[in-house]
Design a protein around this nucleic acid. Structure first.
Lengths: 243, 243
DNA sequence: ATTATAATACTTGTATACAAGTATACTTGA
DNA sequence: TCAAGTATACTTGTATACAAGTATTATAAT
C-alpha cells in the first residue's frame, strides 16, 4: 500500500498535458486495468483530494471519460462502466469498420509515402521489442494505425479515432506490458502481421487487408485474456479468492 | 440588430439542460447556420459576456464543440471550423457507415418491435408536416435514425452517434426550417423514403436499405444547397455583395 | 419497533479570483 | 522612418467560493 501513489500512465507522454488531461489519462488506465472496478462510484471531491488538484481539472477529466464510455455521469457521482469483454469486442468492431472505410479510400490514392512512413514505424517497433520497451512499442503500434487513418484526411473519421484512441492506447499499453513479461514470442507474430498490412496497402489488395485486420483481431483475443489476468493481478492482490 | 439576442435552438428542448449545454447548443446553431463564420475566433471572455454567464459553462461548451469538430481549440482563442461542403459529405460518409453496420446487425435480429416504433415516429412526422412544425419534424427525423441505432445495443456505435447527433440535429433543423418555408413538396419525398427504410428493415432487404440510404443522401444534397442560401441570408444581410 | 420529520453532510453547477504565459501596442532610440 | 524593447491587455488553466438541490442519518413521536 505504500506504493499506491504510483501512476500507470507513462510520465513522459504527459510533458505538456494539462492537469485535467493527466487525471483523465491516469483514471483511464486505472479503470481499464481494473484497478478501479466497474460499478464503483467516483466523487469529484474525493478524486480532487486523491490527485491533489481542485475540482476543475477533475470535472474536465470526468467529462472526457464519459465521452469515451468508460464512466456514466449520473445525478450523484460518476459510475464506472469499465472495459469488459463486450466493450472490447465493440471497440474492435468500430476499428474494423473505420479501417475498412479508410482502406477503400486508400485504394484510390497514391500510397507510396504512406508505405514508407509505416515501414519506418515498424522498424521502431522492432527496436522497441529488442530493448523490451513495452511502452514505446505500444506508442508505435498506436501510431501505426493512426498514421493510416490520418492519411486519408477525413475529419469525421479522425474524430471517431480521436474518441477511440485513448481507450485503445491504454488497453494496448496494459496488454503489451503483460506480454513483454510473459509472452515475448508474441511479438514476432505482431510484427509479421503489420508487415502484411503494409503489403496490403502497397498492393492495394483488399483481401489481404481484411485478412491482416482479422489476424490483428485474433491477436487481440489474446490481449483480452492477458488483460483479464492483469486485472486479476491488480485487483485481487489483497482479496480473498473464495467467493 | 435589435433582435440579435434571439436564439436559434428551440427553447423547449433545453428544459433541463445546464447552462453550458445551452451555450453549446446555441453556439452550434450559430456556427452551422453561418451566423458565426468559419475562421472567426471565439474568446471565452467575450462569449461569457455575450451569454451573460461565467467562463465555466463557456469552457464546457467549447470543449463539446471541439469534440464535434466545429471549432479548434488553440493557444489563444477557439477557431471556428464550421460546416462546409466537405464536412457535410464526411458526416454522411459516417452515417452511411454506421447505419450499414447497424443494418448488418438488424438482419440477424427480430425487428418486429423496431418496425412498429419506426412507424409511430413516421406518423408523428406526418403530423408535424401537416401543421408545418419544422422543429418537431426535425426532432422526429433525428429520433427515427437514433431509434434504429439504439436497437442493436452497441455502446461504441452509440458513442459515435452521440458525437455526431448534435451536429446532425442542428443541420437538419436549419435545413427543414428553410424547406418548410420554400420547398414544402419535398416532404412527401422524405416520408416516402422513410417508408422505404422501414420496409427494408421489415423484409431485411439489404439492397433496399442501401437504396433508401442513398436516396436519403441525395435528399441531403438538396439540404446542403438550402443551407447555403440560409447561410447567405443570415450572414450577408447587412453586408455588401461586391467583393 | 416503526414511521415521520428534521438536521446534516454530501452532491453538482456556476461564479469569481488568481497565476502564468502570450500577443499587441506603444514608446524610445537610432 | 524603422527597429528594439518594454508595458499593457489580453489569453488559458486552476483554485476557491457559493448556491441550490439530494441523500442520508438521526431524532422524535406514536
Amino acid at each position: 500500500m505504500t506504493e499506491s501513489k504510483q501512476f500507470l500512465y507513462p510520465d513522459k507522454w504527459l510533458s505538456k498535458a494539462s492537469s485535467g488531461d493527466r487525471v483523465a489519462y491516469e483514471l483511464r488506465m486505472r479503470i481499464i486495468s481494473g484497478m478501479i472496478e466497474s460499478g464503483a462510484i467516483l466523487s469529484e471531491n474525493k478524486l480532487a483530494a486523491d490527485f491533489e488538484v481542485s475540482r476543475s481539472p477533475i470535472r474536465e477529466a470526468l467529462k472526457i471519460l464519459a465521452s469515451e464510455n468508460l464512466i456514466r455521469l449520473e445525478r450523484m457521482g460518476a459510475v464506472v462502466i469499465g472495459l469488459k469483454e463486450k466493450e472490447i469486442e465493440e471497440i474492435y468492431d468500430v476499428r474494423l469498420m473505420i479501417e475498412s472505410f479508410v482502406f477503400e479510400r486508400l485504394v484510390r490514392m497514391d500510397t507510396g509515402e504512406l508505405a514508407i512512413e509505416l515501414s519506418k514505424i515498424l522498424e521502431m517497433m522492432k527496436v522497441a521489442i529488442k530493448y523490451q520497451d513495452a511502452d514505446e512499442f505500444s506508442y508505435q503500434d498506436v501510431l501505426f494505425h493512426e498514421t493510416i487513418i490520418r492519411y486519408v484526411d477525413h475529419s469525421y473519421i479522425l474524430m471517431i479515432w480521436n474518441n477511440l484512441k485513448p481507450v485503445m492506447e491504454s488497453f494496448i499499453l496494459l496488454s503489451m506490458r503483460m506480454r513483454f513479461a510473459e509472452k515475448y514470442e508474441d511479438f514476432t507474430r505482431i510484427v509479421n502481421n503489420h508487415e502484411l498490412y503494409i503489403d496490403a496497402i502497397k498492393t492495394k489488395d483488399r483481401n489481404l487487408m481484411i485478412k491482416s485486420l482479422h489476424k490483428n483481431f485474433d491477436d487481440v483475443q489474446g490481449k483480452v485474456e492477458d488483460l483479464w489476468s492483469s486485472q486479476q493481478m491488480l485487483s485481487k492482490g489483497a482479496e480473498q479468492q473464495d467467493d
